[in-house]
Structures are given as structure tokens and as C-alpha cells.
Design a protein around this nucleic acid. Structure first.
Length: 353
DNA sequence: TACTCGTGGGA
DNA sequence: TTCCCAAGAGT
């Protein structure tokens, strides 16, 4: 490692010793590594997700499933419902697949980056992070925080995503052999609290003396990103069908949007187009209001249709389930459908009681 | 490579 | 309000 890199790593670790955030899944700086199960679980939850959003879910999962063996033994539906609201549901499916793979191969996580990378849900970032944080292995850990810190530190102009190659090489250069986990977490803490996307606190930064972006007077210009496409706006319909104080819920297909989650029946809306308007039965329907929901790549107006027929509805049992209205919170509906269900309950309050 | 895949918070 | 973004992975 060259002198500048050693200097950077030393300053950063000294800063981390004083300013590390205290987080439920983290060991204090310099102390023994935490349980790999907890490190892995937190890293998966934190993928594209803020610390604030993860905290309650992490507590819930570790209380309910204290070890990877406990999680591996859980029912799919239980885990999916527990994940409801956190988003990116493929993570929950892969979480279970990973827990079961680990449980079947002896119950311990592999301690090398290469082996970790083979597990479902562990990509380049997460495998490196777990290797470093849980096992003290030197690994090049690059998340969005590190990208920002490094792009500013070296004033890397190449726009993302292409510029990631250069950023990774630069990160490799400043990554020390010792205290691998602390270094990775220090970079992420710095990015989260000092080297922030907007209004970076350069006067408080331990690396400002080494930072080319700061010296040039425009740290916020980095990292350069390619412009994004506009989000389309879609229309869809969900159906609120009640019988004997129970509502009809379906399970969505295992892949794709909200895959594997319990949901209200809908008309097949997607990122690519509006729904057909057709429901699982003929109706008649009464308008029950609409909710707007923003996904990563499109915005959806979901209109709720209330069944208003006088006949008692019959539906094929293998297509869904009648779910008690007073236990609706336990169904684990993703946020979009939880919003729609609130409309349905409100509409019933106006008419029934 | 470029898409797809959630959600809530901040500016 | 609207846009951007956050400890990315899978295909």
C-alpha cells in the first residue's frame, strides 16, 4: 500500500474509533466480530434500504428466529409476512433459500468471500461485507456510500454505472489488510453522516486533507451519474370482496412484482401497462376510492372496486383464501395493498355499521 | 449491459 | 409537489 493510501486508512480508522454509530447488528470498533448470522441478516435488510427502516425488522427477525437454523425451519408464508413493508421481496425469498442452504451444510456460514458469493442473495457487495465484518477478511467492500466517498476523494469523473470499475480499483488501493470490517463500516459511516449526497460536512471530515474533490471546491459534483429515464404512470384496479366478515386474498406468483406476497386480487397492472379492469368475478362493483403508490420505475394509481352484489360470492379455494377482517394486519400485505385495504375497511365502516 | 424489483424520508 | 435516494441482486 502506498503512503497516501496508508494515510487515508489510518485517518479513517482513527475517526471511526471516536465516531462509529452504535447499531443493533454491530460490534463496537476494535471488539470481536459479531455473530455472522446477524451480520448477514442486517446486510440483506440494508440492501437499498435505510438504517431507520431496518431497525424494527431486524429486532423482529432476531427475536423470532435467533439463529440461522431457526430461520431455516420457518414456513415460507411466515417469513414473507414478517418481511411485508420492507420492500424488494426477492430478498426475503433468497433469505430463506440461503438460511436453508447454510443449515443443510452444517449450520455455519462459510468464512470466505468466494464461498459466500455462491449463496442466494449474496452479491458482490454483500459477500465482501460479510467476509470483512463477520470474519475479518480483507475484502473490497463497495456500496453506494463507498462509491460516493471514493469518487470524491479521487475526483473520479467517469459517470456511473461505467465508472464503477475505476471506483472499485481505487477502493482496493486504500483498503488495509488489518481491521477489514472496521474499515468497511467506517467508510459507510462516513458516507452516511459526513460525506453525504447533499451538503457534505467537509469541515468535519477526517479525509478532507486528502480529498481531491474537496480541494477542487466541488465535492458534490461526484460521483457523476447518467441521467435517468422518466417514470411512467399506470392505472390498475384491486378488488375488495367480503363474505362473512372475511375478505378474499390471493397469493401472488413467486417471481415478479411483490412475488410470493399475499395480496388483494387485481386486474394485472404492471410496470409495462395498465390493468385490464377485470376481476376474479363478474361484479357488480362500486368505486371504493384510489391510492397512489410510487415504485422504483413507475407510479401506480390503484383504484379499489368494492363488490356490491347481493349474491354470496363463491370462489375456487385453490385460488386464494378468505381472511378474517379482524386479523388483516397479520396477513402481511405489502404496502400498496395495505393502503388499498384501508380504503376497503373505511368503505365498510360507512355502510355496515 | 440494462432492466426489474419497494418503500419511506429528506430537500 | 416532485424528485432523488438508500449497506444491491438476479437475470
Amino acid at each position: 500500500m502506498d503512503a497516501r493510501s496508508e494515510h487515508v486508512a489510518g485517518h479513517l480508522l482513527a475517526w471511526y474509533d471516536r465516531h462509529a454509530r452504535t447499531l443493533p447488528w454491530r460490534a463496537p470498533p476494535g471488539s470481536p466480530a459479531p455473530d455472522p448470522y446477524r451480520v448477514w441478516l442486517s446486510e440483506v435488510m440494508l440492501q437499498q434500504t435505510t438504517v431507520a427502516a431496518v431497525k424494527d425488522y431486524f429486532a423482529k427477525f432476531t427475536t423470532r428466529w435467533p439463529t440461522v437454523a431457526d430461520l431455516a425451519a420457518a414456513e415460507d408464508a411466515e417469513v414473507m409476512a414478517a418481511w411485508a413493508g420492507l420492500g424488494y421481496y426477492a430478498r426475503a425469498r433468497n433469505l430463506l433459500a440461503c438460511a436453508r442452504a447454510v443449515a443443510e451444510s452444517g449450520g455455519s456460514f462459510p468464512d470466505s468471500e468466494d464461498e459466500l458469493r455462491k449463496l442466494p442473495g449474496l452479491g458482490v457487495y454483500t459477500a465482501a461485507a460479510v467476509a470483512a465484518i463477520a470474519f475479518g477478511r480483507r475484502a473490497v467492500v463497495v456500496d453506494a456510500n463507498v462509491e460516493r466517498v471514493v469518487a470524491r476523494l479521487f475526483a473520479i469523473d467517469a459517470p456511473l454505472p461505467g465508472g464503477r470499475t475505476e471506483i472499485r480499483a481505487a477502493t482496493d488501493r486504500i483498503t488495509p489488510d488489518a481491521r477489514a470490517g472496521d474499515f468497511a463500516q467506517a467508510m459507510m459511516d462516513l458516507g452516511a453522516t459526513v460525506c453525504t449526497t447533499r451538503n457534505p460536512r467537509c469541515l468535519l471530515c477526517p479525509l478532507s486533507g486528502d480529498c481531491t474533490g474537496y480541494r477542487a471546491g466541488e465535492p458534490e459534483r461526484f460521483p457523476v451519474k447518467a441521467p435517468k429515464a422518466a417514470k411512467p404512470h399506470r392505472q390498475g384496479r384491486a378488488f375488495w370482496i367480503v363474505r362473512n366478515e372475511k375478505v378474499w386474498l390471493v397469493q401472488r406468483p413467486g417471481k415478479g412484482m411483490l412475488g410470493g406476497m399475499r395480496a388483494l386480487p387485481d386486474d394485472g397492472w404492471s410496470a409495462r401497462g395498465d390493468g385490464s379492469g377485470e376481476g376474479p368475478i363478474a361484479g357488480p362493483w362500486t368505486p371504493g376510492g384510489a391510492v397512489q403508490h410510487g415504485f422504483t420505475h413507475f407510479t401506480l394509481d390503484l383504484h379499489l372496486a368494492l363488490y356490491s352484489g347481493s349474491e354470496v360470492v363463491s370462489l375456487p379455494p385453490d385460488a386464494g383464501e378468505w381472511w378474517s377482517l379482524d386479523r388483516l394486519e397479520e396477513a402481511g400485505l405489502p404496502t400498496l395493498f395495505a393502503k388499498a385495504a384501508r380504503l376497503g375497511l373505511a368503505a365498510m365502516g360507512e355502510t355496515d355499521r
